[in-house]
C-alpha cells in the first residue's frame, strides 16, 4: 500500500498523516508511555510503550495472562496506572472528556442481564455516550443504531431477544453496540473467542467496513483467523511487557509465540498473581485515579 492509497482510504477522522510521513503524532488516538499497572499491589503491566496511529488496525497477541486485557483496560481508563501516562487523541487520560470517540467491546462480556432485552435495545445503549440527560431518543440515535446493526449484519434480528441469539451473534451485537456510538477508536477484547467461523467472517467484514471509514482499531485476539487481511501491525505481549511490535505476524509465527509460551504460563485462574481476600469487608482499591 502506498501512502497515497492510505490517505484516500481514510476519510473524516482518517485524514491524519501516516506514521511514515513524520513525527506529528500529537493527536494519535492512543499513546501509552512507560505505562505500569498494578492489580492488588502486584505489578502486572510494566513499562509498556505503545502508540496507535490514526486509521491503523493493531492486533494485540499473546498467551493467556500476558496482560492484553489489562493493557486494554488501562488504555480505556478502567484501571488506574501505577506509573506512566496514557493519552487519548492527544489528551491525557485524566482530562479526557470525549469518551464518545472511544468504543469498547469488553472481554467475555455478556449481553444478557436479569431482564430480557432486544437486540435493538442493547445496541441502542451504545448511544449513551452521545445522549444528553433526560432527552428522548433522537433521530440521529435511531439512525446510528440501524447503521450499526447493518454493519454487523443483524438488521433482520433487531427485534429479537438477545438470549435468542447464538454466542457469535451476541458478540456481534456487542460490537454493534460499540459502533452505535460512532467511535473513532474501537477497542475490542477478544471478540472472536468461542465464535464459529461464519460469525468470525461476519466480524471481519464489519471491521473491514469500519476500517474503510478511517476508524482506528485495537483488536485483542487469540486467533486472528479471517481478520488477518485487516491487520496493519501486531503487538505481542508476554508476561506484562511488549515482546514484539511490528509488521503483522503471520498466523503461524503468532501461533508459535502463543503456544511456546502457553506451556510456561502459570496455571490457575485469573487471580493467580494476587491472594484471595477472605474477609467480607476487605477490599482492593480499584477506583479511577
Amino acid at each position: 500500500m502506498t501512502p497515497a492509497d492510505s490517505t484516500t482510504a481514510g476519510t473524516g477522522a482518517g485524514s491524519q498523516p501516516r506514521p511514515e510521513r513524520g513525527p506529528d503524532r500529537g493527536t494519535d488516538p492512543a499513546v501509552l508511555e512507560r505505562v505500569s499497572v498494578a492489580i492488588g499491589g502486584r505489578p502486572i503491566l510494566r513499562d509498556v510503550d505503545l502508540a496507535v496511529r490514526t486509521g491503523e488496525t493493531v492486533t494485540l497477541l499473546g498467551p493467556n495472562g500476558s496482560g492484553k486485557s489489562t493493557l486494554v483496560r488501562a488504555l480505556t481508563g478502567l484501571l488506574p496506572l501505577a506509573r506512566g501516562s496514557v493519552r487519548l487523541f492527544g489528551t491525557p487520560l485524566p482530562d479526557f472528556e470525549h469518551w464518545h470517540r472511544v468504543g469498547f467491546v469488553p472481554q467475555r462480556s455478556s449481553a444478557t442481564g436479569g431482564v430480557p432485552a432486544t437486540v435493538r435495545e442493547v445496541v441502542g445503549s451504545g448511544r449513551v455516550g452521545r445522549r444528553r440527560l433526560l432527552r428522548p431518543t433522537s433521530r440521529a440515535d435511531r439512525r446510528a443504531v440501524e447503521a450499526a446493526l447493518d454493519v454487523v449484519g443483524l438488521a433482520d434480528r433487531a427485534a429479537y431477544g438477545i438470549s435468542q441469539l447464538s454466542g457469535g451473534q451476541q458478540q456481534r451485537v456487542l460490537i454493534a453496540r460499540a459502533l452505535a456510538g460512532e467511535p473513532d477508536l474501537l477497542v475490542l477484547d477478544e471478540p472472536t473467542a468461542g465464535v464459529d467461523l461464519p460469525n468470525q467472517r461476519a466480524l471481519a467484514e464489519a471491521l473491514a467496513r469500519l476500517k474503510e471509514r478511517g476508524a482506528t482499531i485495537v483488536l485483542v485476539a487469540h486467533e486472528i483467523g479471517p481478520m488477518a487481511p485487516l491487520v496493519d501491525r501486531s503487538v505481542v505481549m508476554r508476561d506484562g511487557r511488549v515482546a514484539y511490535d511490528g509488521p503483522p505476524l503471520t498466523q503461524e509465527v503468532a501461533a508459535h509465540t502463543h503456544h511456546a509460551h502457553d506451556l510456561e504460563a502459570p496455571e490457575g485462574d485469573a487471580h493467580d498473581h494476587v491472594p484471595h481476600v477472605s474477609s467480607p469487608f476487605d477490599w482492593e482499591r480499584r477506583t479511577r485515579p
Binding site: H100, V102, F104, A117
Partner: peptide
Amino acid sequence: GLSPQLFAVASDPDFARVAGLRVR
C-alpha cells in the same frame, strides 16, 4: 428519565464507563 443511562450501566458497567458515564 434516566432509563437509557441506568440501562446501560446495569447491563454492562465497563462499557458504560468507557462510554463516559459515571457508573459509580
